[in-house]
Design a protein around this nucleic acid. Structure first.
Lengths: 221, 221
DNA sequence: GTTATGAATATTGAATACAAAATACAAGAT
DNA sequence: ATCTTGTATTTTGTATTCAATATTCATAAC
């Protein structure tokens, strides 16, 4: 008998696959906010029937990415300023909590990993590579979230950041704000290294509040 | 021409109605955690076809009330101790935030309303009417949440409390814990009246932490 | 020209039909 | 008797069909 464990054959329901694909398309901005999503069209595009597509839509609607209006179809949810004003304080509170929890649970190896990402992120900042900076930034926040050891929290945070991500605000962040964000990250790393949960919570909350201001500035111009 | 506006004829999709009904049944404990939900059976019970039922299930699964396993159906999500340990700190953080926001926005009339509920709640405590106490308690928290003027926050909080509500822990709250909870509510009302956001945030967070302990005590006996 | 009306068309909602997978069960092998 | 193995049944996943509603567009009235 073999010791090897055969990898299970990957088979998943169409509605899952569809929900993932559509979620990705919405979050990444491939489908514009407000865009009408006609069932027939999407079915042809994905080569599936309406049943699994409609099931996927219900999921996305529950996640707040899509708006279903009875008898008149489905549209990508718009992102209003009010939405951002609502979402960011929540994200701030959740990040603050995850910071506190992370300080209790994080290992030295995880901190080292974050420090590594942080240093690479700073280099991207110095090089003015905003796209790469943003990516590393996200990874750092993700690792802190993982260190909190609270999957429910991680999932909620992920869901919220998916919603606001579409704002695509980073594209026009002012030099002043960018430099400030980097400075904040420096302090975040410090607090995390010292495992100072209270301080990290405050830093992350403020960091998110500033991010909201950045987004709003970008959107109102 | 009449000034009266005719009430719109209420027509809603079956999947909405089904999701609401099933959600209620799960949250109120009419469907036990872990219970298998066979499509055929539910369809007959509600007198609908499988299509809208399945759509409703996708919604409930996204909300975390139900667990879908590919090709082998649907079951009411179980509530583990780990789930509670995850959910309560999040609820604490969200309540803290809503407390802070509420202090900024709440009107005198709203505070008066809460004070009224609070006093009635205390009377129920003195009378040992736990069921009524619990109901008023919920209403107070709900009003604070509304006063925060953040629908996204309210919705997330509602969703989380729906999940943990099934624990039905209040049924066996010790006299000591109950008295403590009432004392906490007294201070919560004070802070709210003084519109002391920071203090209210701390009180609500601690209140939730204590609630978690109550639940865990009730479940482990 | 603009607005109102109604038929034709398209789209969504729900039920049914069909396909694929899982479960239950019986017969045979060990 | 227990464990396989194969078959029947049930259940789930997806496609298709039918029905209800909304939209479009042409026509007519003003």
């Amino acid at each position: 008998m073999s010791i090897e464990i055969a990898a299970p054959i990957q088979r998943r329901p169409l509605h899952n696959e569809l929900a993932d694909r559509l979620r990705h398309m919405i979050v990444e901005g491939e489908l514009a906010p407000g865009e009408k999503l006609a069932e027939k069209e999407l079915c042809e595009q994905f080569g599936v029937s309406r049943t699994p597509l409609r099931e996927a839509m219900k999921v996305l609607a529950t996640e707040g990415l899509v708006l279903l209006t009875p008898n008149r179809g489905c549209a990508v949810a718009k992102l209003t300023l009010a939405d951002l004003d609502e979402a960011f304080p929540i994200m701030g509170a959740l990040e603050a909590l995850s910071g506190e929890l992370a300080c209790r649970h994080i290992t030295d190896a995880e901190i080292a990993r974050i420090r590594d990402l942080h240093e690479r992120m700073v280099k991207k900042y110095e090089a003015g590579a905003l796209r790469d900076y943003f990516k590393l930034n996200e990874q750092i926040h993700q690792l802190i979230l993982n260190a909190a050891r609270n999957p429910t929290l991680a999932q909620m945070q992920l869901s919220l950041s998916g919603r606001v991500r579409r704002a695509r605000y980073m594209a026009n962040m002012s030099p002043a704000r960018w430099s400030r964000a980097v400075a904040e990250h420096e302090k975040i790393l410090e607090a995390l290294s010292a495992r100072d949960g209270k301080r990290l919570a405050v830093l992350l909350k403020d960091h998110l509040a500033n991010k909201l201001q950045t987004v709003k500035d970008a959107l109102t111009e």
